[in-house]
Simulated scan of single mutants.
Amino acid sequence: MQMYEAVNVLGEALQPCSKRPMTGFFRDGSCNTCWEDSGSHTVCALMTAEFLAWSKYVGNDLSTPRPEYGFAGLKPGDRWCLCAARFADAALEGCAPKVMLASTHRDALREVSLAVLKEHAAQSK
């Protein structure tokens, strides 16, 4: 698998999203992507209780631990590389989490506009 160029939605070098928990399609801590990443795990999002409940409701349970996959489950405050389409759906439903723009891969723009991402931008720490 060949990774796409690591550029964020602002046109700068892609910054890491999270190593605790370890995230990303490549499980390298960044929202890097490639052709094989059919879900486009490119939006670095700051989890909220509201989003996690919504995601579980629509069939993508991110909060329940799955030890057989080495997945501890997410909790509010965790950063995670979300599928761009899932983020877009959550934004339409009014429950999108905050986004770390510097850590969101530019490939996310295929599914969600920069304006929507900026509307949900978190303050960088």
Rank of each mutant, 00 (worst) to 15 (best):
G11C: 07
F71G: 02
E68Y: 04
A13M: 06
A49S: 10
A6G: 07
D107P: 03
V112N: 07
D28K: 05
E68H: 13
A102K: 15
K98T: 10
S40E: 04
S103T: 11
Y57A: 15
L14M: 05
H105T: 09
E68V: 07
F25Y: 15
R27G: 03
R106G: 02
R106I: 08
S63D: 14
L101R: 08
S55M: 03
N8E: 04
V116I: 13
T64N: 00
L62K: 00
K118V: 14
E119K: 09
R79D: 07
T23M: 03
A53T: 00
E50R: 00
V99H: 04
D61F: 02
C83E: 13
P21W: 06
G70Y: 02
A115H: 09
G59T: 07
A115T: 14
E5W: 00
L74H: 10
A96L: 06
R110G: 12
K19E: 15
D61A: 01
S38L: 11
E5K: 05
D78C: 01
D28E: 06
R27H: 15
A45V: 11
Y4I: 04
A121H: 03
W80M: 02
D61S: 04
A85L: 12
A45E: 10
V116Y: 03
M3P: 05
E119W: 02
S103H: 12
S55C: 05
G59R: 09
T104G: 06
C95G: 09
A45W: 09
A121E: 08
K98H: 13
A45D: 00
A122M: 12
T33P: 12
G24N: 10
